[in-house]
Amino acid sequence: MILEVREMRMQFGGLLAVDRLNLALKQGELVGLIGPNGAGKTTVFNVITGVYAPTRGTITLEGKDITGMRPDLITRMGIARTFQNIRLFSRMSVIENVLVSLHWRLRSGVFDAILQTRKYRDEEAEMRAKAMDLLARVNLDSVADLPAGSLPYGSQRRLEICRALATEPKVLLLDEPAAGMNPAESIELMKFIQKIRDEFGLTILLIEHQMRVVMGISERIVVLDHGVVIAEGTPREVSRNPRVIEAYLGVEQHA
């Protein structure tokens, strides 16, 4: 198990957002986390990435306890994420967005940067080459110097994923990457996600609101409703599960 969430509970005052969540991701797996609005999907992401410390339970990455660690340290341990509402550094250029993710590996100190020493310049050149390579792999190398905010929506989504990849994660958490896309675009994006999973040897946890989108690519789906897991299994199993259908469509009222 590369990522394991055990008996996690997240409570905000009187609101129980997530309760008794158990989640285990195997190396190389692509798991979908689905559920209706307000089911607690993004809260799960925020707890795993350290934005919130869970009220109870533990999160381990490759056996190491990362519960309640600071988000930047968790990223350095190997968990990267994207955001549901795109959070690019919109006034910075596309390549700069990717370079920010490489900053934590920088060995040169501030004085090297200020004095533009040989050591720093070599590292900077190395970082730029790496960023360009990553951008080329997501087909964004031709717009590297444009402001990130000026990109079309679909490209911004791809850039967010590219930026997360630049931190060299083992586990990638994608929060509704297909939000706001039409079905054709969604399918294209899902193929892209599968491709990067294979190319970078990633383990992916994918939040999606629409069930249809993740059905095609996930090996396993976890369904969350009102903060608890109501079903888990292959896409086929999950889509036939009456509790899932009930959560999504509501229960029929008998007179």
Binding site: F83, S101, I114
Partner: peptide
């Protein structure tokens, strides 16, 4: 000094904090 700093990786880290703190931290920036 500031020009070199701003155009360096440290400067990009500063600007990323200005642009979006949550995203900057999620990208490993202390």
């Amino acid at each position: 000094m500031l020009k070199n700093l701003i155009s360096s990786s440290y400067g990009r880290a500063f600007k990323s904090i200005r642009e979006n703190e949550i995203a900057a931290q999620a990208m490993g920036i202390d």
